[in-house]
Write a protein that binds this DNA or RNA. Structure first.
Lengths: 199, 199
DNA sequence: GGGTACATGTAATCAGTTACATGATTTA
DNA sequence: TAAATCATGTAACTGATTACATGTACCC
């Protein structure tokens, strides 16, 4: 068993099962959606297929409810716990992937007419502002005093820290796009696309 | 021809071909590596396969050098230019994907022993600091005065803007991890992984 | 009791990644 | 001229996405 390649998704599932106990794919989905899903999307079908794959490697076990819904419940195994801990122990240095269609369009802004640039900046600004508000709202709701006992580093603590980086990114993005919009999107290169086309 | 699904990679290729003119996959790779590749990795084989796919849709044409290397040279077509412009004109609101293994590990920091947390923070701090330095160095090198004529929004201008968002992210990340390290990684939940394992 | 949103899943496809391989230049 | 690095590519695989589909609970 084991030792196929494990992906970030694998560790996400293993980690959640280790921390939250036996879960259905739907529960995983809810949990992810409320946390990491804020900046790292995991389509719901992934949370069905990934546990199944891990089961094939003996890192989790699958059981099925007997009643109506017959939901699939996954439980982490000893082997799964070990794989998870080995990973948590291993430092790595892969750079962050920052995938943003808006930035890609900005990169090619010289190929777009000024009107499109303006729309881009406004759209991005609106999107990032909305996201920022959502983070702030979220943070306000869950600041339960007893969760942060002095010195103790609880689950909620790390959850909060992780989300804070998402919030910091959105803050930076808002400032960035404000700056882009303000510094002007005015006339630049001749409006059309160059690069003598063939065909 | 055309009208299969176009991905971000497609638009990257189309945009580069439109702006830089006919290019080989290797030239695309160099260009990407020096710009977007800083925060959005595109494995080099993608820059071989993607133009080929676009050729199948009539958005680019492929020619082959006759001499020794017989390199593949891709040129954007009229249809390709139109597809690109239509995309640049289209606003969209997909949220940024921020994929960072360090954040994933931080999310599960309560499952790791304090020593591992410490290593995590140090590793991340080193990585982000290095990346930040690279951005700053890069920015210093290319600040050629004539590139930024007043009011004109040149290719270099947008390139610079795009990279600036990458830099802002790294700045935020450095501050974030400094804060994580400083606020303490000390004792929290009982060290081991819980979540009663089965199997 | 019909609509709507929530919940749960399967299956096919394909974009992206990994693995592999070799030719051309430069440098020691 | 050997080694190292740069340059160029093919092919296989698979994780992630898309499309599809249906059951269950709640609300009007």
């Amino acid at each position: 068993m084991s030792n196929e390649r494990l992906t970030p998704t694998s560790y996400l599932v293993l980690g959640l099962l280790a921390r939250e106990g036996p879960s259905t794919p739907y529960e995983l989905e809810r949990h992810v959606g409320a946390t990491l899903g804020n900046f790292w999307s995991f389509p719901h079908t992934l949370l069905y297929s990934e546990p199944a794959r891990l089961a094939g490697q003996g890192l989790v076990t699958e059981t099925r409810e007997q009643d109506g819904r017959r939901r699939r419940v996954f439980t982490i195994t000893e082997a799964g716990v070990h794989a998870l801990q080995a990973w948590l122990d291993r430092p790595h240095a892969e750079p962050t992937q920052l995938r943003d269609l808006g930035l890609l369009q900005l990169f090619f802004a010289d190929l777009a007419p000024p009107a499109a640039r303006l729309r881009l900046a406004e759209q991005q600004l609106a999107t990032h502002r909305a996201k920022l508000s959502a983070y702030e709202e979220d943070g306000r709701l869950e600041r339960r005093p007893e969760a942060s006992r002095r010195g103790q580093r609880t689950v909620e603590h790390w959850r909060g820290e992780t989300l804070r980086m998402g919030l910091l990114y959105e803050q930076a993005a808002v400032e960035f796009w404000e700056d882009v919009a303000q510094k002007g999107l005015g006339p630049g290169e001749p409006s059309g696309v160059e690069g003598e086309a063939a065909g």
